[in-house]
Design a protein around this nucleic acid. Sequence first.
DNA 1: AGCAACCTCTTTGTGCCATC
DNA 2: GATGGCACAAAGAGGTTGCT
Length: 430
Amino acid sequence: MAKKSETTSQNEKKKIRKKGGNEVAFRPQSIVEARYNLDRRQNDIMDIAFGMIDDQVDKKEYSIRVADVKEYYNIEDKSHAYRFLKQAVESLEGKGFKLKKDEDTSIFYPWFSKITYVRAKNEENSHIDFKMDDDLKRMIVESRRGAYYSIRYAINLSNKYAKRLYYLFQDRKNWNLKNPDLETGVFTIAIEELLRMLDCPKSYKYTDFKRYVIKPSMEQINGSTDIYFEYEENRGKLKSGQKGVLSLTFHVTQLNPNSKVVADAAFYEITSQHVEIRKRGYQDAEVRDILSMAKRYNRDDQFIQEALEIVDHSKCESKVGLACYFMKNGYNPLSAGRQLEKETPLKTAEHASSYHNFHQRNYDYDELEKNLLNQGISKETKQTDMIEEEKTTEKREISFEELQSMMAGNPQLQQEIASLLEKMNGTGKK
DNA sequence: AGCAACCTCTTTGTGCCATC
DNA sequence: GATGGCACAAAGAGGTTGCT
């Protein structure tokens, strides 16, 4: 009895996890990731289907012939070949993946919109025909970006993670815009992101990832496919504060370059920093914009996090825009606002980029004190509903939350504020 | 049977603190 | 500043369970 309830709760857990895994962000990479939920045989079928679609995008209906399957799988028994093919396709019936277009809209794409099973007298002439949604077909073509890899190689991979990594490497083997002349793709992905991309269990720690994903993948991919890869561990401070492996930098080499494909995506590293920022609710592209801005103006991680904290608490319509503005001009709303009035944007940018060390930023303490005290007074007089009061203040004055986040990690400011608060409490709390 | 997930225990590494 | 002890988390590894 107890066991039964345990297993059902486990099943529920699985269901929930799988549902989350199916719902992926709207981008070309989605197709690759959506396939992670399929098993080995199903992925083989998708490989065959994708290959057909790549060859003839405009075709209405496609036909998988037993003769082809026989070739790919090296199946001697023809009658088994059809059964094998039918079974695999049948397992895909009703399956698909969900794209999250935005907060309110999600779209479900079934892999196949129509499947026709045709058994011929001569087994080899048996075939299965399928139709696919036009949008999905377009996405497939886009997701593959002309990376025409051989189905044979993918089928050779028995480990599910090896297969997933292989697709990932095929997708990114040319991601090396730093050295476009090299045939080696070099890119860095945070462990957290890798676990998500490869749909690893939540229980996986780096050590599990290493032995169940990386190790078998190296054994299978290197040597039996058209790709060779190496990786290096990037160590740093984990969330817990201790040191550990934060990300992996992959070096992917195409062994038989039939056609050199120029990457159409800018070289970009998905770092733990990226993952952290995304948790605030930004899309990948938005994070990329913010981080590229931050890099341009030498903003360190602390600066970025604190600036974004302020953005989170602001009621600005374009949070990304405000975040980018902060990266460029600095996020002290007091000095930034004043500078804007007097100087040209370029000048403020130059000024801002001279702040190399966050701790040494020049706060306008007089202005801060004035604002802080004003807030204190208004808080005193209208203490009934503080939140409501904050909402109604149209003027961009510094709030307590903002102040707190500004104070975090800045001892100098902390001291100043502490003495100010003491002053306030001393005069106000009567 | 084989693979993947999970559990558990040991070892190693790191940060913090007190003491000298 | 150097050293040692302690606590905690990561890493490593062996074994078990569950699923197809």
